[in-house]
Write a protein that binds this DNA or RNA. Structure first.
Length: 140
DNA sequence: GCCAACGTTGGC
DNA sequence: GCCAACGTTGGC
């Protein structure tokens, strides 16, 4: 199973919005970046991801699961763009801030640190465990 | 609100 | 196919 990170902004799509969708999930639309799209094409049902909020919170706040593989993005007619569906799994007991992540040497290679602009990114298994531990949240 | 970094577009 | 110009993102 692979791990990912999905970036959003509370003003656009909040964690509460995601949780409210329940097990039905919601498509992760609006991505207009080839790298991010390519990562979504690699995703499989059951893959887990962090839900990260940029701009204001700048924190990982929850865990999501891929519940539909890549399909055309319903918000555009442009067939270049695809997206997956994700559903909320659980909220972090304590959100983990970007500052905390940057302060942790073992997370120095995280894409979030290295390429902060990429909106959908892979997370290594050890990074996954570390961030979950920092959030006092079950990793599986 | 600023600006650096990055990705995309379009003229040549 | 190169690269300058432009737009967007996101941390500060």
């Amino acid at each position: 199973m692979a791990y990912w990170l999905f970036k959003s902004e509370t003003s656009t799509w909040s964690w509460d919005d995601q949780v409210a969708k329940g097990d039905a999930g919601e498509e992760w639309d609006g991505v207009r970046n080839y790298q991010a799209r390519n990562f979504m094409r690699e995703m499989k049902i059951g893959d887990r991801g962090f839900f990260y909020l940029s701009q204001k919170e700048k924190s990982v706040v929850g865990i999501v699961e891929v519940c539909a593989t890549a399909h055309p993005d319903s918000t555009t007619d442009d067939d270049r763009w695809e997206c997956v569906d994700i559903k909320a799994v659980r909220s972090f007991e304590k959100s983990v801030s970007l500052d905390q992540i940057k302060a942790n040497e073992s997370l120095a290679e995280m894409v979030l640190v290295k390429n902060s602009r990429l909106s959908v990114q892979p997370v290594a298994a050890d990074e996954w465990k570390t961030v979950c531990a920092m959030g006092q949240t079950k990793a599986d």
